[in-house]
Computed example of a mutant assay.
Amino acid sequence: MMFDWSQQRLLVIAPHPDDEVLGCGGLLHKAKSAGAEVYVQFLTVGDTADVSDKGFSTASERVGEIKEVADHYRWDDWHIAFPGDDYHLRLDTLPRFEVANIIERQSPISVTSVRPTAVLAPHRLSYNQDHQVAAEAVHTALRPSDARRRHHPCLVLSYEEAADQWRQEPAPAPNMLVELDEAAIEAKIAAMRLYGSQFHDHPHTRSELTLQSLAVLRGMQGGVAFAEGYHATRMLA
């Protein structure tokens, strides 16, 4: 199936800065290069303990990284819904209604405001609690309704990350593959490098070799060189 990305308006829901690159960084390059609009709704960012030499990254550092990545991709806009340590890695303490409302109508780049043709979000089977909250909130925000009264994106996709394989339920195979060229893979890896606090050497789920390997695997499954895998929840032609 051929898909005209040039006519799309993408809204990506990223629980944290870097999830949008890990999950759909190749597609973001492909779509934006074709002429699409791209908006990224981050749910939260805060000080983060990590395995770097310093042992942590600050929220201000990570916001600075977002700005570099946004310039790299030429996003049309981005927004952080729940900044601060009260929410970072604690989104499961919020009522789903509050998170879904941000996505549906309260954010400056909400579904109601942006009227995206495609929404991309994490998969609900991620081990990470913030990812699970994001996936369920998107599912609620995009519930079936009268399209004359509420905006219905025609394409709703769950993106995958290598770390999602760490879960007890069997990982379903993607039911949609998006072909990528070498430039899209290079752009994805370059963007991940801009998230310097989150990028790691191999072996790590956020290493260059991991990103390349997953793209090669998904590409092989589609008979092409590179691809990203998605789970389509809604696809209205």
Rank of each mutant, 00 (worst) to 15 (best):
I185T: 04
E68P: 02
F42E: 01
D71C: 02
A31T: 04
Q8T: 14
A183G: 01
Q132T: 09
R218A: 10
H79G: 00
P153H: 02
E104A: 12
T48W: 03
S57R: 05
D4C: 06
T233G: 03
A183H: 10
L155Y: 00
Q212T: 12
E169I: 01
L180H: 05
E37Q: 14
V40C: 03
Y39N: 08
A118I: 13
Q8S: 11
V178S: 04
I103G: 03
D92M: 12
S126N: 15
A184G: 12
T233E: 00
E98F: 04
E37R: 14
L22Y: 15
I102C: 02
Q106S: 15
H200E: 13
A237S: 12
Y159L: 01
D85F: 05
K30Y: 05
A190T: 05
S60P: 04
R148L: 04
G222F: 05
V133Q: 11
R206P: 02
M192Y: 07
E104Q: 12
Q106W: 09
R167Q: 12
F56S: 14
V69Q: 00
P203T: 08
H151Q: 00
R143E: 07
W166P: 01
L211F: 14
F82L: 06
C154M: 07
S145N: 07
H16V: 06
Q221N: 15
Q212F: 08
V69D: 00
M235P: 02
G25C: 06
H123Q: 09
L91D: 10
H202R: 10
R206E: 11
H131F: 13
L214S: 06
K188G: 03
R167A: 10
V69G: 00
S6L: 01
I13L: 13
Q165D: 12
S60H: 15
L157V: 02
R105H: 14
T205S: 14
I189G: 03
I66V: 11
R90V: 13
H152R: 13
A171W: 06
A135H: 04
A171H: 05
R115A: 10
E169A: 10
L91V: 13
P17A: 10
Q221R: 15
I185A: 04
M176K: 11
T48R: 05
A163N: 08
M192Q: 14
A173P: 03
M176W: 08
E228A: 08
D164T: 01
